[in-house]
Design a protein around this nucleic acid. Structure first.
Length: 271
DNA sequence: AGACAGACCTGTGAGC
DNA sequence: TGCTCACAGGTCTGTC
């Protein structure tokens, strides 16, 4: 799915359509998402006004006068703005209908996504409370990243994909940031030098910011709020390029599985 | 505490 | 054509 850049692109896309609007109806066609959508949710949010659209890690936060709707896009989800009542397609699991005549339509073939609700502080929700710092905010502290890695034997790629280390870095951008920092993905996190760890933090920031600027990466399912794919894919250095020549040194890109996830790297550019 | 594997689910492409 | 298998952008849960 959607990693941080894709979720942020979605947030920006729905914001002008949803912020300030009143929810007229929540239509749930399939409540069997990662966590079942509660039956009473529709009644709780009907009539509420959407005050703001936020994001924490890969979670979208629709703050309303009744509470906060928390949307996760899972591996294959998207949230689009469409005319309310337009014909649903396969895997269109819920519509959040607005008083403008539009709706936010959630599509997710694999159903790893979710729709949650909380009346309290969403950041205190059990699924969000333990998340690490936002990589594009000042909370992402290079020094703290370095300290956290002390003694860790897990691969550096697995380490930066742990949402408690830093939020929002998924499989694509973990490989991409490591390429940019010149660090091989299988190196134990605790063995990355301080200087290289700082370079990695910088690479995480730059690659995520660049991907947000390009509207994210589309490999298969991802589309933004307008139904359009992201444009970052041609700018990937290594992801899904196994066997293809490195764009810097022409050495064939390698693929290795770390933490049950495919990882891509250049054996010459990354040490 | 940290490091794993397994689980959830559907679609797609490769190989036979 | 049709079957089986591997794999896909996430992340929680259980076990050692």
């Amino acid at each position: 799915m959607p990693e941080l850049p894709e979720v942020e692109t979605t947030r920006r896309g729905i914001e002008p359509w949803a912020s300030g609007r009143r929810i007229t109806r929540l239509v749930v066609r399939n409540r069997r998402l990662r966590w079942p959508v509660p039956r009473e949710l529709a009644a709780r949010v009907a009539g509420a006004t959407i005050d703001a659209i936020g994001r924490r890690a890969k979670y979208l936060l629709l703050r309303t006068s009744a509470g906060t709707l928390i949307v996760h896009l899972g591996m294959s989800g998207s949230l689009r703005v469409l005319p309310a009542g337009s014909r649903p397609q396969a895997h269109d699991h819920f519509d959040l209908e607005l008083d403008s005549g539009h709706c936010l339509r959630f599509n997710d073939p694999r159903r790893f996504g979710s729709l949650l609700f909380t009346r309290g502080d969403p950041l205190a929700h059990p699924l969000l409370a333990a998340l690490g710092p936002e990589p594009l905010s000042a909370d992402f502290d290079d020094e703290r990243l370095w300290r956290r890695a002390r003694g860790r034997r897990a691969a550096i790629k697995t380490f930066i994909m742990d949402a408690r280390t830093v939020a929002g870095v998924g499989n694509i951008y973990a490989s991409e940031a490591l390429f940019r920092a010149g660090i091989r993905p299988g190196l134990a996190a605790g063995r990355v030098s301080r200087a290289r760890m700082l370079a990695l933090a910088a690479a995480i920031r730059t690659v995520l910011a660049a991907a947000v600027g390009a509207g994210g990466t589309t490999l298969r399912n991802y589309v933004d709020a307008a139904g359009l794919p992201g444009h970052f894919r041609p700018r990937l250095w290594v992801y899904e390029r196994a066997g293809a020549p490195c764009r810097k040194c022409r050495t064939p890109i390698r693929q290795v599985v770390l933490g049950q996830r495919s990882s891509y790297w250049c054996p010459r550019c990354q040490r």
